[in-house]
């Protein structure tokens, strides 16, 4: 059974359908990226998962149980949400102790999680003086109090510096490697590319696709073409056209061959004795696929023609 299961989840705010019949599953032991442009319904979905926003219809469960019915929610699910805040006058350690006490967790966990996220030195400082990055870490510390099996993070990279993002990436990978389910939302695939195993892509409240990162890469056509630099560009285009490839001149010296692999192209260049100054793979970026998937036309680099 998946750690998180979302079934036909729908949310209407008056006439606006924020989330529309959304279904997906989040497995344990993997980092699942929850991706979509701003306004796609990611935050609303995550808040419905956690019982903060009431679904118009459909269900969201953790091992079959809705969040509101979990006997010890913080021991099962840890959440880092956007737009959550802290009382500015409260000290970091008091915030954590208050949550731990309410959740029936040992108070000593407060110090442990502060050290874990690197805030041990500022435990007794008031949260009002924290930077955005420190608040994100304190949010994460709060989520980790109950050592939960499921982690849900809404745009956690916001406000983190590059070291912070690297730290978070390593941390989330480690969490998944130890068997936890991690669901992390982002509007930037590039930010998540190194972190996630699976992607759930959302646009305009609807599921676009759920696939593995490898599946998305295949769709991007990672081996989708070659770029050749040659002083004989014209002859090269003719030769390739004769071999059935889609080749086009980009400028005086550059030719792009759609769908070609180096193994296919190299022998042809050798056979026709074409002088070649450079040979490079054309990499369709995941971000391009993501953008084309979420912009609504469903096409993109994955649909380019292949040589016969």
């Amino acid at each position: 059974m998946p750690a998180i299961e979302v079934n036909g989840l729908t949310k209407r705010f008056g006439p606006v359908v924020a989330v529309d019949d959304l279904s997906f599953a989040v497995p344990a032991g993997r980092v699942t990226g929850f991706l979509g442009p701003n306004g796609a319904g990611k935050t609303t979905t995550l808040r419905m998962l956690l019982g903060l926003v009431h679904a118009t219809s459909g269900s969201a469960t953790f091992d079959g149980t809705p969040y509101q019915d979990l006997p010890d929610p913080l021991r099962r699910v840890g959440a880092v949400l956007e737009a959550t805040s802290f009382h500015p006058g409260r000290r970091a350690i008091h915030h954590l102790r208050m949550v731990a006490m309410g959740a029936g967790l040992p108070l000593g966990r407060a110090e442990e999680v502060l050290d874990l996220v690197g805030l041990g030195d500022v435990a007794r400082r008031r949260v009002g003086g924290f930077s955005l990055g420190m608040r994100q870490r304190l949010e994460l510390a709060t989520a980790l109090l109950g050592d939960p099996q499921v982690l849900i993070l809404d745009e956690p990279a916001n406000g983190l510096d590059p070291q912070g993002i690297l730290w978070l990436r390593t941390f989330l990978r480690h969490q998944a490697a130890s068997g936890r389910a991690v669901l992390v939302s982002s509007h930037l695939l590039s930010e998540m590319e190194e972190t996630v195993d699976e992607v759930v892509i959302l646009a305009a409240g609807r599921l676009v696709m759920q696939t593995t990162l490898a599946g998305l890469a295949a769709r991007a056509g990672r081996h989708g073409g070659m770029r050749v630099r040659s002083p004989e560009a014209d002859r090269l285009v003719d030769v390739l056209a004769g071999a059935g490839a889609m080749a086009r001149r980009v400028d005086a010296e550059h030719v792009v061959v759609d769908g070609a692999t180096p193994e296919w192209l190299g022998p042809i260049l050798a056979h026709h004795q074409i002088v070649c100054y450079g040979l490079a793979e054309e990499r369709g970026s995941l971000e391009d696929v993501f953008l084309s998937l979420t912009s609504g036309d469903g096409g993109g680099p994955g649909s380019i023609g292949h040589p016969g």
């Binding site: 956690l50 959440a79 949400l81 805040s85 309410g102 959740a103 709060t142």
Partner: peptide
């Protein structure tokens, strides 16, 4: 009302979903 003003109510409802 302080919980709503400082948005700490999110955390409170995560601890006490009912």
């Amino acid at each position: 009302t302080t919980e709503f003003r400082h948005k700490t109510v999110t955390t409170s409802f995560l601890v006490v979903p009912r």
